[in-house]
Design a protein around this nucleic acid. Structure first.
Length: 494
RNA sequence: GCCCCCAUCGUCUAGUGGCCCAGGACGGGGCCCUCUCAAGGCCCAAACAGCGAUUCGAAUUCGCUUGGGGGCACCA
């Protein structure tokens, strides 16, 4: 299978935000295409104008770009099988609908929405399965043609076989057999003349030479319908792969609006557009979603290229997967730690800027090694290192007092530290740590007690990157000034 | 109500009849390291939904039950 180049498509409808499920589908598409030396196609399924959301298509394009999974053909870049926006292909669908009617695989239906609604209610009352009752299917072709010619409002329905069953093959689930009577005559062209998904997707997949259809399992129930449509045209079927759905963290059902806002409060999102602002990296997100529905025996930290190397369609998991944001944190932090300082610094800069800090790049480059292993999300860099870019810090006096020490003692400790540090030609890990360790020993206090006072004095906070490396970056002059300020505060408290 | 799909630690998964009294990862617990916070190292607890059947042998095959999910639109 890996030997023939695959043509795979990601075909979202621009009706909302690009979310995790879509991103994973696109990722798998991309991986299969790269793995086989094939093509990854983006097709926009925008046939439903009522649900169309302006900007949604751009969000999809931006999302894929951010993730770093570029498509080879698409609406904005074109390609040999275009156009790639379904509203620009309407004539194609019309022609194909005509072919199906001519071959007696489809027929016009004049039933009103009201009649259909009543029909469904009656079916429900009689506890029957709900599907079109075939009223217009029984119209004579002549009468149907006459009414169409007369301009009567109608849709086109696909004519399912009266009896028998349809067996459709899914790569992950094997043969799926459904009685044909369980599938109604679906609308394939609406009364406004546009195609529904069932027609448009089948036509496009064929015309665009798609070899593998990878889509969500919500399509499983209409899968036999689709297979029948493809067969009615006499086309070859692609390989069908129906992915599992993502469940909310509790594992009970899909993410709802409520859970989505809930997640946002905790600093998580299922929408790609939010991920960047929340400080997640494409590497982390990719690694996270690739493993939701696909597993490796070991070494699950992977780059995109490694995923391509190892990806295997047949090992996808058909069962639903619960979203686990803790694991996203883990992969995000792991990939941050894998970055070079230059790379990370470049990505961190916008977060400092957004928080109102003017960032000197040379300085940031020195800070990055100190905070890299402390970051879970990239925006964590602000609380950890924002103080580096402040002229003065304003420590909470209460925190200035050393653990289990009085303010007076803390002041005297700080004074001694000041004397040692001020005597140094410059402050660095190498020059400052040994004498300070000796001071700790002489005093008989713990390093935690002594260094804690200095940490708060110099950084203004109780949690910070390593003390002496931080001092080195801050510079002797500023360090001494801050310790001096701290001593004054402590003396006032004493 | 009808149809379809799914079922291994709390979660994501490895496992394709003997290599499995089930491996990895996240999360949890403990220890070590340690100037805070992390990172890192070591260790621990934790699962084949149940019942039948096939087989010398089943997490792996089949059936039923139960549980979960998806769908039943002139939406995708």
């Amino acid at each position: 299978m890996e030997s023939t180049p695959a043509r795979v498509r990601f075909a979202p409808s621009p009706t909302g935000h690009l979310h995790l499920g879509g991103a994973r589908t696109a990722l798998y598409d991309y991986l299969l295409a790269r793995r086989t030396g094939g093509k990854f196609v983006l097709r926009i399924e925008d046939t439903d104008q009522k649900r169309y959301v302006p900007g949604a298509e751009q969000e999809i394009v931006d999302g894929l770009r951010w993730l770093g999974i570029p498509y080879d053909e698409g609406p904005d870049i074109g390609g040999p099988y275009g156009p790639y926006r379904q509203t620009e292909r309407l004539e194609i669908y019309r022609e194909h609908a005509k072919i199906l009617v001519a071959k007696d695989h489809a027929y016009p239906c004049f039933c009103s929405p009201e009649r259909l609604e009543k029909m469904r209610q009656d079916q429900q009352k009689r506890k029957e399965s709900q599907r079109y009752d075939g009223t217009c299917r029984r119209l004579s072709p002549d009468e149907a043609a006459r009414r169409v010619a007369a301009g009567e409002k109608h849709v086109i329905r696909f004519k399912m076989p009266e009896d028998g069953a349809t067996t459709a093959h899914d790569l992950l689930r094997g043969d799926i057999t459904v009685e044909n009577t369980n599938i109604g005559d679906y609308v394939i062209v609406t009364s406004s003349g546009g195609p529904t998904y069932h027609l448009a997707a089948m036509v496009d997949d064929h015309l665009m030479n798609i070899t593998h259809v990878i889509r969500g399992s919500e399509w499983l129930s209409t899968f036999p319908l689709h297979v029948n449509i493809v067969r009615a045209f006499g086309w070859d079927e692609p390989v069908w792969v129906h992915l599992s759905v993502f469940l909310k963290p509790s594992g009970k059902g899909k993410m709802s609006k409520r859970e989505t806002t809930e997640a946002m409060k905790d600093g998580y999102s299922i929408f790609l557009k939010d991920m960047q602002d929340l400080g997640f990296t494409p590497e982390g997100v990719l690694n996270w979603i690739v493993l939701m529905g696909w597993g490796v025996a070991a070494d699950d930290v992977m780059t995109l290229d490694q995923m391509v190397e190892r990806f295997d369609l047949e090992h996808l998991n058909p069962s639903p997967a619960a979203i686990n944001f803790a694991k996203l944190d883990h992969f995000n932090g792991t990939h941050i730690r894998l970055m070079t300082s230059e790379d990370l610094a470049g990505r961190l800069k916008p977060f400092f800027t957004r928080a109102g800090f003017g960032v000197e790049e040379a300085k940031l480059l020195r800070i990055v090694p100190l905070i890299r292993e402390r970051l879970v999300t990239m925006d964590d860099c602000v609380p950890f290192a924002g103080w580096f870019f402040k002229e003065t810090v304003s420590p909470d006096p209460a925190f200035l007092v050393g653990k289990n020490l009085t303010a007076a003692v803390s002041a005297s400790v700080a004074r001694k530290a000041y004397d040692i540090l001020s005597a140094l030609p410059e402050i660095s890990l190498e020059t400052a740590e040994p004498p300070m360790r000796r001071l700790v020993e002489d005093l008989g206090y713990s390093p935690n007690q002594v260094f804690g006072i200095l940490r708060v004095a110099v950084t203004g906070q109780t949690v910070s990157p390593p003390l002496f490396e931080s001092m080195e970056i801050v510079g002797k002059e500023k360090v001494l000034r801050r310790i001096q300020d701290a001593i004054q505060i402590l003396e006032k408290m004493a």
